[in-house]
Design a protein around this nucleic acid. Sequence first.
DNA 1: AAGCTTGATTAACCTGGGTTATCGGTAGAA
DNA 2: TTCTACCGATAACCCAGGTTAATCAAGCTT
Lengths: 266, 266
Amino acid sequence: MNLQDSCIIRHFSHFCRLSEDDKQLLRRLEESPEQVKAGSVLWQEEDSASEFCTLSRGWAYSYRNLGDGSRQILEIYLPGDIIGLREFAFSQRLAGVAMIDDGVICHFPHRRLLDIFNQSNTLTAILFAISSRQQALLTERLINLARRTAHQKLAHFIYEMYLRLLQTGALSDGDFRLPLSQEQLADTLGLSAVHVSRTFSAFREQGLVLRDRHHVKLPDPEALARVAEFDDCYLNDSVRPIFFDGTEAAMRMTNSHSADEGPVAK
Amino acid sequence: MNLQDSCIIRHFSHFCRLSEDDKQLLRRLEESPEQVKAGSVLWQEEDSASEFCTLSRGWAYSYRNLGDGSRQILEIYLPGDIIGLREFAFSQRLAGVAMIDDGVICHFPHRRLLDIFNQSNTLTAILFAISSRQQALLTERLINLARRTAHQKLAHFIYEMYLRLLQTGALSDGDFRLPLSQEQLADTLGLSAVHVSRTFSAFREQGLVLRDRHHVKLPDPEALARVAEFDDCYLNDSVRPIFFDGTEAAMRMTNSHSADEGPVAK
DNA sequence: AAGCTTGATTAACCTGGGTTATCGGTAGAA
DNA sequence: TTCTACCGATAACCCAGGTTAATCAAGCTT
């Protein structure tokens, strides 16, 4: 993987070393880049769904508008993420998607995914892994929403973003840009904007999180993780490179009739 | 599809007509059936994850235990569902799974899924569709937990189960078995058991839901849907048979080495 | 420089649902 | 038949977080 690689390729490489052919297939997903402005809506709930997007630059989020006028933000997309996988089995969008930042997106049709199924088992497996990881994120967010206090919710969210940004190598110390307004945070966490503000005030007093506009500083990330009761097994180390990397497992994938020694337990 | 077909095959057939080869591949997932008793735990969080299960009979649920001793139930599995897809990208279980009912499960190793990727694009696409549908269920549950009142939560859950059971053809009128205790419902909905009881009492007075032990009667399912602000687009009709059935897309899938109209650099 | 608009802060007040506790009904178990 | 366990119902009390509203700061227009 070299520096000119698109962030999609970087993202996929995170799971497994890719062949040149695989990279070529992935590059085809980014054939038609398009500039989009902050706040612009990529699609809305119930629009017809016939394509996916890769997000090349900027942040985006998916959301649902509720009957009572409120809104729930479902997930935050970072560069390298694929948007719209959720609707693979559906003909309508189940959620709207909008840009947080200015950014760049690339559309590609559903069909292209079937091409990938046809042509690369490695990419198929990675796609499946990505989908399963996304489900893990969603699950964690669900628990966050269902069971934790406002303090924990906010702490958890900030720490999760911190880790995701660390993973993509986009930051060094506990000091980063978080381009979400308090209202967007509230919509993400199932809180009111007012209470998000209260919670930030409390965090500032405790020296846990210092937020100024879109800039966040974490003097002690570990302390924050403790407040959130953060358990990173759904994010980090347990992504199983074992399964894909150079080894017998990867070979098993491309060469399905190998000896069947058992699954790779730790 | 005939009556002896396993419920996995019935489940997959819901998306697309299957070839005999595909059915054979699926049958291999159910080679080693095992009886399990109500309440038995299939696995726990952080167990090492090297296999999936199909659920042939009975109901099951996945859950997470939280730091404070409470517990969140993540999803309810019905016969025909595949359990453990969530962990495809992980080497550890992210959630425990336990049986609600007595039932029958069949283990199969991760590897078997890779075999499917190799051997059938149709099944690969269906698996992807199933994973995306599961994500849709999860998303809906997330919104339920984040944004709705206790009445709506319970109404929504009951109505969702009602629809899922309708789909599997397991019931006719608004009259079915719901083998969950109020405590399990509470853990599913992020409520206390006490409040679930209160809510059932309210529903009984309003004639919305009549529950006796594990038996539920819905005198007017539509009324319940209205209370829940239920929007079934994530469940029903929008599953896209279009995508798989008979058309060029399906053909491209099953006939993978066709003329390489591939690189559709349009 | 005088407006607007959007976001953030803080305070006062209120409520949905958590918590604890008690009690009754039903089902196996012995 | 009685014991024990579990499940469900109801009541009393309480608090985390929602709601409303007022105020302020920071960009923008013009």
